[in-house]
Simulated assay, not measured.
Amino acid sequence: MPIDPVQAVAAEPRTAEIAWGHRDVQLYHLGIGAGVPATDPRELRYTLESRLQVLPSFATVAGAGTATAGGLALPGIDVDLAHVLHGGQRIEVHRPIPVAGRARTTAKVAAVHDKTKAAVVVLRTEAADADGPLWTSDAQVFVRGEGGFGGERGPSGRLPDPAREPDRTVDRPVREDQALLYRLSGDWNPLHADPEFAALAGFDRPILHGLCSYGMTLKAVVDTLLGGDASRVTRYAARFAGVAFPGETLRVRMWQEPRRVRAAVSAPERAEAPVLADTVIDHS
């Protein structure tokens, strides 16, 4: 079997040294739609090096996102990438991510769940610098056709939306070139750029990266409910419930709770088709 759950979980973690600077942070922020309007002081905190802060979702691309790819190469994991789907993402930040830094990442398979028709591999990456832990990132990766091995199903993670109207709803446009710009941060999957490759995957045009929608949503919440202060975010989790396309709109509905924001994201151009679900942002 291409996935050996026991071997995968028991395998020694992969370690790597990563580094980033203000240009990496600025490019990532531009890739998730920051900088419009270009001279707006609220946007300059994402684009101007003298005022720069770092959204915690930058952790997904720090070091060009090498940790997830490395996790899929661990012992016990031998899968066809055409059968792999990024199902969800969780990030816990232990302190604000610096604008420039170096860190050691440790990647391992934290769990393998049996969903009968698919396996869910939880890839955990921990990053630390000279001052201690920076972030912990869990990527939930669905591998179609690899379930049915008799393992635990794992937690469902499904969270129904609150039974009331959202406290805030904002629309965030996805530029036509959004995926082309976002992929410069390290995700070179042609699904997001090549129409012929997208057609082979069953789409009539390239789709937006799920992690781009993930970053755009966090920025919308930070700007709308957290006073634009990215350092207030302590944990961010979401499930990729559907796709978004360049040129569409992300509609972000938000519900405020004590020290937490719940969110749901849809595409209004396609009858509110879901994009992100089970979305939770914990904050100080």
Rank of each mutant, 00 (worst) to 15 (best):
V122M: 10
V122C: 04
V122G: 02
R124E: 05
R124F: 01
A128I: 07
A130D: 15
A130F: 09
D131I: 00
G132A: 09
G132N: 10
G132R: 14
P133H: 11
L134C: 08
L134W: 02
S137V: 05
D138K: 04
A139M: 01
A139E: 06
A139R: 07
Q140A: 04
V141A: 02
V141E: 02
V141T: 03
V141K: 08
F142Y: 15
V143F: 11
F149R: 12
G150W: 07
G151T: 00
R153I: 04
S156R: 06
L159N: 05
E165C: 04
E165I: 10
P166K: 12
P166S: 13
P166A: 11
D167S: 08
T169L: 03
D171M: 02
D171Q: 12
R172M: 01
R172W: 02
R172Y: 03
E176P: 07
E176K: 06
Q178A: 15
A179N: 08
L181S: 13
L181K: 04
L181P: 03
L184A: 02
G186H: 06
D187F: 08
D187L: 06
W188P: 11
N189D: 03
N189G: 05
P190M: 09
A193L: 03
F197L: 10
A199C: 06
L200R: 15
A201H: 11
A201M: 13
F203C: 03
P206T: 12
I207D: 04
L211Q: 14
L211V: 13
L211M: 15
S213F: 05
S213Y: 01
M216W: 10
K219V: 06
K219I: 06
K219E: 06
V221K: 08
V221S: 07
V221C: 00
V221R: 05
D223T: 13
T224K: 01
T224W: 09
T224P: 01
T224S: 15
L225C: 13
G227C: 05
G228V: 13
G228R: 08
D229E: 14
D229V: 08
D229S: 07
A230E: 03
R232T: 00
R232E: 11
R232C: 01
V233W: 09
T234D: 09
R235H: 12
Y236Q: 10
A237G: 01
A238P: 03
R239W: 05
F240P: 05
A241K: 02
A241N: 04
A241Y: 01
V243K: 13
V243I: 13
A244P: 07
A244N: 14
F245C: 12
P246W: 12
G247D: 09
G247H: 01
E248A: 15
E248S: 15
T249W: 00
T249L: 01
T249F: 01
T249Q: 05
L250T: 13
L250D: 11
L250V: 10
R251V: 01
R253A: 15
M254Y: 07
W255N: 04
Q256N: 00
P258Y: 11
R260G: 00
R260T: 13
A263N: 09
A264S: 15
